[in-house]
Amino acid sequence: MTESGITSSSVNKIRKNEKIAFAFLWASAIITVLVLIAIVGNVLLNGVGHLSIEFLTREPENMGKDGGIFSIIITTIYLALFSLIIAAPIGICAAIFLTEYAKEGPAIKIIRFGTESLAGIPSIIFGLFGYVFFVVFLKFRYSMVSGGLTLTLMILPTIIRTAEEAIKMVPMSYREGSLALGATKWQTIYKVVLPAATSGILTGVILGIGRVVGETAAVIYTAGSSLGLPNSIWRPGRTMSVHLYILASEGLSKGNMYATATVLIITVLIINFTANKLIKQFMKA
């Protein structure tokens, strides 16, 4: 401000600056939303026309150039279930330990550091690790097991963090009530705390599914990319994201590429919508 103090021109200048600044803030928010609409819109507009029941129920032909993505959808679900069955119990147990048992100290700091670090590791590093550890060292080859275990590690931090938040939100009085009735600590957790935190915990699990479905780099070097139904957990397979990556980078078929992208986007939309619903439900309870 000028030395002459508050004059009408300096007030005008402040007003003008505020207008410009707020216009920038509005623009930032609008750009963010427009970018989202542009990306989702581009995929849906180009893809919906190529979608059909046949595309979802037929096998890929000519390396995915023709035909549908039936076995690819099944492989994706297979891999998501495999990693969840392992990651969800471990993640929830870890969260219970961190919230209900661990006392603040170096041990808990190290565990938290581990979880944070795991969350920050890029997927290509998970891919390298999964390849050298599960595929080569443990001789699991390119398989659902190698892919599933790699993804388990990847989604663990999401599940732990969300479950931790959910468990922390359960009011202390619930626990005190249960303990006062003579229940043991574990009975209290199992019968009172966990049921109260269920929808919050489920949110993390669903976000984990989202990560598995969208993952490419960590999957392609562990579960492989071969077409066909994996008829056992020791067989390789190709997920939707990997399929889309291969179609897009090899320019095989625009129609099938967009149709696959559309199925992928719709899956992600459903997952996000469900997670949001669950959070709202949890917040209300």
Binding site: A38, I39, V40, N42, V43, S123, L207, G210, V213, G214, E215, T216, A217, S241, L244, Y245, A248, M257, A261, L264, I265, V268, I271, N272
Partner: peptide
């Protein structure tokens, strides 16, 4: 939540 391949595609 949008997968990286979708960003790559765009």
């Amino acid at each position: 939540g949008i997968p990286s391949v979708i960003y790559g595609l765009y």
